[in-house]
């Protein structure tokens, strides 16, 4: 049995469908309020995957994911490192991705959780809900991305513009194949190099702005009535993780 810990609380709100997606992929989700983990983190020792769902932790005030990231980093860093040391996986979607980035767990090239990239307000300044085409990096070693080429996924964010601290980080991401997926056809938020998601050097920590958990059925695709094939479901991401851990 594969246990997935799904963090909740403080304005996280896409937890339910993330749990459903893991369940459909064959894993057992467990919802873990961050407030409980701060008091007693033992629940984390039983999970193989730790997932940070989308939402608006702390209302995106003071920067999306920042306050939530500070809480996790200062209280649960050892537990997350232990999870990764025993071969576990970490996923962050949208606000979860923002959290992973702001606390330095992504891309974490040096392994010390120092933030080197960020996700900031979209270049047009607006929150947008729309479907985009993404291309997965076929050179990535990430278990999350196996057999994925391209897909349609919804984005729903106001702060998804990916930026790096400097050119060196930008270069490292490219050369080490840490760019997990990029926007195709259009850049919806001004992200550097069209980046929609990245992994850490092990590939086991994965974060992305689009919402694969919102595409677990063909009937959720905006063109399902017009297309016989709607392409690769977001569900595949979760199945990959479960297959890897089996």
């Amino acid at each position: 049995m594969i246990n997935v810990g799904i963090l909740t609380g403080f304005g996280i709100n896409a937890d339910l469908e993330l749990g459903q997606a893991f369940e459909m992929a064959g894993a057992t989700p467990q919802f873990l309020p961050l407030t409980s983990l701060i008091e007693d983190s033992r629940a984390l020792s039983g999970v193989q995957i730790l997932a940070f769902p989308g939402g608006f932790s702390f209302g995106d005030h003071l920067g999306s994911g920042r306050v939530f990231g500070q809480m996790v980093k200062s209280r649960l860093k050892d537990e997350v490192d232990a999870l990764l040391a025993r071969g576990g996986l970490v996923l962050g979607i949208c606000n979860g991705f923002q959290t992973l980035v702001k606390m330095g767990l992504l891309p974490n090239i040096e392994g010390d959780w120092t933030p080197t990239v960020s996700l900031i307000t979209n270049d047009h300044g607006l929150f947008q809900d729309k479907w985009v085409k993404v291309r997965y990096n076929d050179k990535s070693v990430s278990p999350w991305l196996r057999d994925l080429q391209e897909a349609d996924l919804p984005i729903r964010h106001g702060e998804g513009r990916f930026v790096t601290l400097n050119e060196q980080v930008r270069k490292d991401l490219k050369e080490r194949q840490l760019i997990a997926l990029t926007y195709e056809n259009e850049n919806p938020n001004g992200s550097q190099d069209n980046i929609a998601g990245i992994t850490d050097p092990t590939g086991r920590v994965f974060g992305l702005m689009p919402h694969p958990e919102a595409f677990t059925s063909r009937f959720l695709h905006p063109l399902w009535r017009r297309r016989r094939e709607v392409g690769s479901l977001g569900l595949k991401v979760f199945e990959n993780a479960v297959d890897y851990l089996k």
């Binding site: 459903q20 929150f127 729903r156 063109l223 399902w224």
Partner: peptide, 22 residues
């Protein structure tokens, strides 16, 4: 309307917009 999140909770089968260019 694009600025409304109409898809969180993953329920939306018919969305506010439809068609080739949504």
């Amino acid at each position: 309307v694009r600025q409304y999140d109409h898809e969180v909770q993953a329920r939306s089968v018919v969305k506010p917009f439809c068609g080739e260019k949504a």
